[in-house]
Amino acid sequence: MTVYAALLRAALAGQAGYRASFALELLGSVLVIGLDFVEVYAVLTQVPELEGLGLAEVALVFALASTGFSLADLVIGQTDRVTDHVRRGTFDVLLLRPLSTLGQLAAADVQLRRLGRLGTALAVLVIALSQVEVDWTPARVGLLVLTPLSGAVIFGSLFVAAGAVSFWLLDGREVGNALTYGSGYLAQWPTGVLGPVLGRFFTFVVPAAFTGYLPALALLGRDDPTGLPGWLPWASPLAALAAAAAAALLWRTGIRHYVGAGG
């Protein structure tokens, strides 16, 4: 672990050389979540409720999903640089070290400006929590703590999966981004708006619904209007484990493909 801490410090020291526009990039990162929230805010001022949830409740969905997404983006969003590493041959250098490739990617390319995004998401979460009525029980407190972490694992798995895909498709970055950022975007809304087919897809295939909407239902003590079983909203940690296992498998297969194909 200390090894990765050392790599992290080195990455940050390297970036310190380019401090000039860091403040503006941080601001951009803060605003990017604000940008998404404008949409929630604008739509929920036009209609009182969406899928039975009002502005404060949708804001809670938004904030839970965004916190998980921002955390994942900060820790492992660097996998979108796999293509660059492969093209420049620096991926070989990662393979020459006695460390995990994923750990090295995460530590070596960390982007601190992504903290701005996490900060905004947490701020929206605090405000949303103050505006909704929750019957707090120990289980709900536990769920509130676990949800951003499960969300981070779920989105992190998507980032890793997208990175793994670029071992096969060198130009696959945009498709990968559609998966990761697209899921991050739709997870900010009640899943029911997607309709039955897409809604089920982003619950059971890509578990985006487990990062915001479903845990929000559990916190608020509501039932899903589309008829999902009542225990499902509590199952985010399980969904996270499944996603992580699938992503790890895909990444290993990707590395094996890279090692097999030759860079």
Binding site: L50, D171, V175, N177, A178, V193, L194, L198
Partner: peptide, 24 residues
């Protein structure tokens, strides 16, 4: 790839807007 991405986001966005229109 860009066209696919834009289309995918379009589907999600339009779903949200349709849901809003139905609610209104």
């Amino acid at each position: 790839a860009g066209a696919v991405t834009n289309t995918f986001f379009g589907v999600v966005k339009l779903s949200i807007l349709f849901a809003a229109a139905d609610a209104a």
